[in-house]
Amino acid sequence: MYIEIQNAGKKFIQDGTEFTALENVSLSIEKGEFICLLGPSGCGKSTLLNAIAGFEPVTEGSVKIDGKEVKEPSVRNVTIFQNYGLLPWRSVLKNVELGLESKKIPKDERKKIAEKYIDLVGLSDFRNSPPRQLSGGMQQRVAIARTLAVDPDIIFMDEPFGALDAITRIKLQDDIRKISRDEKKTIIFVTHDIEKAVYLADRIVVMTPNPGKIKSVVSVPIHGYRDRTSGNFIHVRNKIFEIFNMKYEPDIEYII
């Protein structure tokens, strides 16, 4: 297994009292898988993501990537954030070059790589613009280009489309699915949106709060194009509704 999480837990001390954000989480992820961590707020999905990404390692159990214990963020893995994290003082091109700068790549080579990925996300016309002149969706595409430019093994996404409008969001979801298939990256994606999870993921990790733990893991056996109105799609979605006990069951009082 590529990513191996065993009995992982995370405890915080908040105002003198202990708070369990994550308890007894075990999960294995294969290389190239698209995983969605799904659940309501407080279920520890972001905590789990931060632990795998190395920002805040777990306090119990272990998280291993490629057999190595995760203690700090690695340059092999990149996180995409909800509020993009673009540097406002740099142009789009310079933002995309950011990650390449620590890799000792010559200057013109850097520019070439950056331009390739700006092209890939369809923002060539804006390569010299400052991020503030771009819409939210375009800014997130810049963040995606910046991530792909360093050719990471794993891409972590923490509610990356949370701040975008519905149409832009759907468009970007298509882009992300395409990228995950074409570039064969392992992607771990945090969301509270069930539709989004079913649309994107190979497997959905359903989490519940108090304390945060994994309730179940649902495979999405739909290959190729995913139609949001198809029977398969609705079947998987209903399965998740059931896990959350949210499925509407009419109160039958009488039958004729």
Binding site: A53, V78, L98, G99, E101
Partner: peptide, 27 residues
């Protein structure tokens, strides 16, 4: 704090961190 997370994510360490991220962000 997102700038710090981004720097960590892309492996930007001192002294580059001061010139590339902290100074411009605070400027």
């Amino acid at each position: 704090p997102i700038y710090m997370k981004v720097s960590k994510s892309f492996g930007i360490k001192q002294p580059q961190l001061i010139w590339k991220i902290i100074l411009p962000a605070a400027f």
